[in-house]
């Protein structure tokens, strides 16, 4: 749900003859199985994620100036990009010290480039399109779901608001300890550095988080802790690139919610919940495209807000 949308009364639930399968004259079950094996966006996304991370590795291994550094801070063809959460922590530290005047122009460029880029791409698109931890966690999630289904373990969930507690907490921690405490724990940075510059013992920590996600709580780090993801959620709030939902094509099968990494963002697919004919998925969405792939009626699609009206 976007921060700026007003609360409205839901539209009346669709009648049976308004459902997409009745319009096509198909039985509901058959209609539901329509795009079962479509993995277009997932394949694109995985390819891109591997490509970006490989670009880092290759740049270091072959000494090329393509994409240098790591996910904490990098240079793309000589152009700086900086992790905004690190930057926020540094700014918090600078309140107490006189460090701020020494920050370089490259810092300013890197910070604003990334903020502008992700405020256009929207939501947590960094997470599913770039983050190497996300890639691991996707497999951990599959394993977790399998174990829950087999009743080997129980699902534990927490409030999503916890992410903002950690977000503020780690900034305060940086302020009080004068250290970038979070960067020492950050599995994104750890994995990125390990891939590019060689592994270290610190990978055990990533293993601990993954194990915790598998046996205790689904997507624990990404959903309830990661302040980097929270930063992207805030930055990507008003982005033009989003997933658009069209009510008239929706058959309320909720398969999209089953595959979604952040199902609460698809609240409007439940029958009788949607308040508009069209909805845009909010800023927690990672733009992963699972729902776009799976939707039998193609009710969910990537779009650029504003542009879709012109075209």
């Amino acid at each position: 749900m976007s921060l700026f949308s007003k609360k409205r009364e839901p539209l009346p639930p669709k009648k049976n003859d308004e459902m997409p399968h009745s319009k096509l004259g198909m039985p509901y079950k058959e209609w539901m199985g329509m795009n079962e094996d479509r993995h277009k966006w997932r394949n694109r996304r995985w390819a891109f994620l591997v490509f970006i991370n490989l670009l880092f590795v290759i740049s270091f291994a072959l000494d090329l100036s393509l994409l240098e550094g790591s996910l904490s801070g990098s240079r793309l063809l000589g152009f700086y990009l900086l992790d905004p959460y690190n930057s926020f922590q540094l700014l918090a530290i600078s309140i107490k010290t006189e460090y701020l005047p020494y920050l370089t122009m490259n810092f300013v460029i890197g910070f604003f480039t990334i903020v502008i880029f992700y405020s256009i791409m929207g939501g947590r698109s960094f997470c599913s399109w770039v983050c190497p931890y996300h890639f691991l966690a996707e497999w951990a999630e599959k394993l977790h779901d399998y174990l829950v289904k087999k009743k080997k373990i129980k699902e534990h969930s927490f409030q999503r608001g916890l992410r903002y507690v950690f977000w503020a907490g780690f900034i305060l921690l940086a302020f009080f300890t004068q250290r970038l405490v979070f960067e020492t724990l950050n599995p994104v940075g750890i994995l990125s550095r390990a891939m590019i510059y060689g592994p270290g013992l610190i990978l055990l920590w990533v293993l601990v988080i993954i194990a915790f996600e598998i046996v205790y709580s689904k997507r624990f780090w990404c959903r309830y802790v990661c302040p980097i993801g929270a930063t992207w959620s805030i930055i990507g709030n008003i982005s033009p690139v989003a997933v658009k939902f069209e009510l008239d094509k929706c058959g309320h099968c909720r398969k999209c919610q089953d595959v979604c990494l952040v199902p609460h963002e698809l609240w409007f697919v439940t029958r009788g919940k949607a308040t508009n004919e069209k909805h845009y998925v909010g800023s927690d969405c990672t733009r992963c495209g699972y729902c776009v792939d799976v939707c039998p009626g193609d009710a969910l699609n990537f779009t650029v807000k504003g542009l879709d009206k012109i075209l």
Binding site: E68, S70, S72, G73, L82, D83, L180, G198, G200
Partner: peptide
Amino acid sequence: LYACIKCGLCVQICPVHAIKFAGIN
């Protein structure tokens, strides 16, 4: 200790690979 964001750009750019990352050990 606070200014370094552990990005690795210095590690990357050194032509003789003198600069290394410290592990936890």
